[in-house]
Nucleic acid binder design. Structure first.
Length: 594
RNA sequence: GCUGGUGUGGCUCAGAGGUAGAGCAGCUCACUCGUAAUGAGCAGGCCGUGGGUUCGAUUCCCACCACCAGCUCCA
């Protein structure tokens, strides 16, 4: 065994260490509150948690008492001893100790599975291990209970909500402090805070949950991303469509949304009253865009048909789901559907992936993305349309494409759309929570529902394949991640305010306005500092540091007909003629430099 | 939807059972200043909304709404 096996560089050791700390937490809980029942307590990415069923709510005060008890347990240097029991004795032990959750876990273990326990002093827990040999190896001053919150038993929302205590632990206190400081630092980039401070968006009580208002700055960024994506798609052979934001229930009955997605839709009218028309706002664009294909009889020569749309969607999310710009009830995505001959599937899928990667790379998010192959769950068939055979076929084809393209992906079971498997491109926010940014989906089912067909070379009518895809995903969500990625200081090409003009004195105000007008005439986004326009007022510094360039204009510059350019990146000021600055800006914007 | 927390002028917060404060931002005036904070004055609040308890509530209780973290669900 080499020495560095017992450091946090080694994930296995790190997990073992933190899992042991979670046992120490459970032991502390049982010592202080014996009536509390134990559930499970694994290590996770940045620490560990343990779920408890307690007749009271844990508070910050409880956590502090528990931390103190945990430190005590570390000092006691209790040995962790593993032992195995046959099923009957294991059940008896947990029943005697009054642990119903552990009893359930044992009952669910497959026949023949080894049932192991770990004992440390007066505490024994059902656990597969592994663990450290003694609680003395845990540094008491380098562990911290970070939060407590609700969590469903076995992740099932129909079962009891338990209380989860999150914590973390490191081998040294300095490492713990550095981690906690990094977490605090990350929170400063939180788009939900920064985006409001910098006036990208706001929310309004009387408008409602999940319905953010994009303020001029946020709207500007979204607008230029949309224009750019639409142009890029046009270059790649996409046809732009504009389809309605709502439709009669009839459309959704054909698509399957009425049966599989009704809870997620905003319905206008009474779905149970057949005497009147009933509408619903669209939660997806698919059934609308298919109508473009269905407009007339299609030939194999028409395929692939690549349809793109900057599409606004409405989804009636549960009230607790909304989060800033990341999870909302109305959003706009770079939607698109490709209608294909089967032999075109692989090449077109590749084209979609290349486009998505190009878009994400250009805005700077690709380097932090991960890929997930989202599959159906054969044990949850009521969620999906189609037969197991059709699903196996679609997933088989998609898996082969992904492998051929060398995509490194994880597999997400029961993460598929109701009509097909997906490649989801995932991104984590500053809190470490992951969401889908871009999705590319293979759909062999909906063409049949909509009776879509084309005439092949032999004159036969054939069902096309369909790819559902986004290129930059949802603009609101993308904006949120951009704010977090750049801490609000967006690259010049997408910055809502590219240049701030600051007259030194009001003698220079006229000159400043001339410069501003000239820059705007060249298509740049400029503001005059609203407070410095008059002398002696303060600068809006919090926003100012997010603006890429500041032009300081005093008597000297005015007389020489120049501008003093302060670059945000290095803080340096360079004096140059305006045309030179315009050229510099134009270069950065055209090249989309970051 | 579930668990916990929060809700006081545009923002950050203080306050207390008798009907509200500070700093910053805003406006006015003065000051003409070289790259993150000039000075003086003014204005701004039905203390999230609706009920209840009370002589009296923004402060106590209930419901609802919104915001935050997490769970579940999803782009």
């Amino acid at each position: 065994m080499s020495e560095n096996q017992f450091t946090f560089e080694n994930k296995e050791y790190r997990d073992t260490y933190r899992h042991t700390v979670s046992h120490i937490l459970a032991q502390a809980v049982k010592r202080l509150y014996p009536e509390v029942k134990l559930a499970i307590g694994p290590s996770i990415e940045n620490g560990f948690y343990y779920d408890f069923d307690a007749p009271f709510s844990f508070t910050q005060e409880h956590l502090e008492l528990l931390e103190a008890e945990m430190r005590k347990i570390c000092k006691e240097k209790l040995r962790l001893e593993r032992f195995e029991l046959p099923r009957g004795e294991a059940l008896q032990l947990m029943e005697e100790r009054g642990e119903p959750y552990k009893v359930e876990l044992i009952n669910d273990l497959p026949e023949g599975e080894v049932i192991s326990f770990y004992r440390q002093g007066d505490f024994t827990d059902l656990c597969a291990g592994p663990h450290l040999d003694t609680t003395g190896r845990v540094k008491g001053n380098a562990l911290k209970l970070t939060s407590c919150t609700g969590a469903y038993w076995r992740g099932d929302s129909s079962r009891k909500m338990l209380q989860r205590i999150y914590g973390t632990a490191f081998p040294k206190k300095e490492e713990l402090d550095a981690y906690l400081a990094a977490v605090e630092e990350a929170k400063k980039r939180d788009h939900n805070k920064l985006g409001r401070e910098l006036e990208y968006f706001t929310t309004v009580d009387v408008i409602g949950q999940g319905l953010p208002v994009l303020l001029p700055k946020g709207a500007r960024v979204v607008q230029l991303l949309q224009r750019w994506v639409e142009d890029e798609e046009q270059k790649r052979g996409y046809l732009l469509t504009k389809t309605p934001l709502m439709a009669k229930s009839d459309l959704y009955k054909i698509s399957g949304h009425w049966d599989h997605y009704l809870d997620g839709m905003f319905v206008l009218g009474d779905p149970h009253d057949d005497s009147k028309e009933c509408f619903a706002l669209r939660p997806m664009t698919c059934p609308f865009q298919y109508q473009v294909f269905l407009n007339r009889m299609r030939s194999y020569r028409d395929l692939p048909m690549r349809l793109g749309e900057t599409s606004t969607l409405f989804r009636n999310e549960d009230s607790g789901e909304m989060h800033g710009l990341i999870r909302v009830r109305q959003f706009t995505i770079s939607e698109g559907h490709l209608i294909l001959r089967p032999d075109q599937l692989e090449a077109e899928f590749k084209g979609c992936l290349e486009l998505a990667k190009y878009c994400l790379d250009t805005v700077g998010l690709l380097e932090d993305c991960t890929f997930r192959f989202s599959q159906w769950d054969p044990n949850n068939q009521q969620k999906y349309i189609g037969t197991p055979e059709q699903w196996e076929e679609a997933q088989g084809i998609m898996g082969k494409i992904l492998d051929d393209l060398g995509v490194v992906y994880s597999i997400g079971i029961d993460e598929a759309a109701f009509y097909g498997p997906k490649l989801d491109i995932q991104y984590k926010n500053v809190h470490g929570k992951e969401d889908t940014l871009v999705t590319i989906q293979v759909d062999l089912l909906l063409a049949e529902q909509f009776d879509m067909e084309y005439v092949d070379q032999e004159g036969r009518k054939v069902r096309p394949y369909i790819i559902h895809r986004t290129s930059l995903g949802c603009y609101e969500r993308t904006l949120a991640y951009l704010i977090e990625k750049y801490a609000g200081a967006l690259p010049v090409w997408m910055a809502p305010e590219q240049v701030r003009v600051m007259p030194m004195t009001d003698r220079n105000a006229g000159y400043a306005y001339e410069i501003k007008a000239e820059l705007e005439a060249n298509g740049f986004r400029v503001e005059i500092d609203p407070s410095n326009e008059k002398i002696g007022k303060k600068i809006r510094e919090a926003q100012l540091e997010k603006v890429p360039y500041m032009l300081v204009l005093g008597d000297k510059e005015q007389e020489a007909g120049q501008v003093a350019v302060r670059n945000r990146k290095d803080g340096k000021t360079t004096v140059m003629p305006l045309p030179e600055f315009i050229e510099k800006l134009r270069y950065e914007v055209d090249k989309k430099l970051r």
